[in-house]
């Protein structure tokens, strides 16, 4: 088997990611004041999802991993998406 090269992130890169996460946290607090109505949950979840992806890519090093590992993590999201869709098939057609 082959071992992937270990990527060592620079402090500057990590600091920028931290700032981005702090900004998005602030944003998720601020948007509660904007009253998006029915879209409130959607907008909040979108911001949270962006944060998740940043953490996955940079703090969990997914950006620097092999295609196989990225596909495996992608598969997890597809799986959870499908599970939610299948559950809602019952909810909407019951």
């Amino acid at each position: 088997m082959s071992k992937s090269d270990t990527h060592i992130s620079r402090y500057r890169e990590l600091a920028l990611v931290l700032l981005a996460l702090l900004f998005l946290t602030l944003l998720s607090v601020l948007i509660t004041e904007l009253h998006f109505g029915a879209l409130s949950v959607f907008v909040a979840l979108t911001v949270a999802s962006v944060k998740v992806f940043i953490v996955l890519l940079y703090f969990m090093h997914l950006k620097f991993e092999s295609l196989l590992l990225r596909l495996l993590v992608g598969m997890v999201f597809v799986l959870y998406g499908l599970i939610i869709i299948v559950t809602f098939i019952d909810y909407f057609f019951r």
Binding site: L79, L82, I83, V86, I89, D90, Y91, F92, F93, R94
Partner: peptide, 21 residues
């Protein structure tokens, strides 16, 4: 195997389409 869980619920009042699926 992830997507067959509903076969435990056929008599629970689940939607027709879900039962079919």
């Amino acid at each position: 195997g992830y997507f067959v869980w509903g076969h435990h619920m056929f008599t629970s009042g689940m939607s027709y389409w879900s039962r079919w699926f």
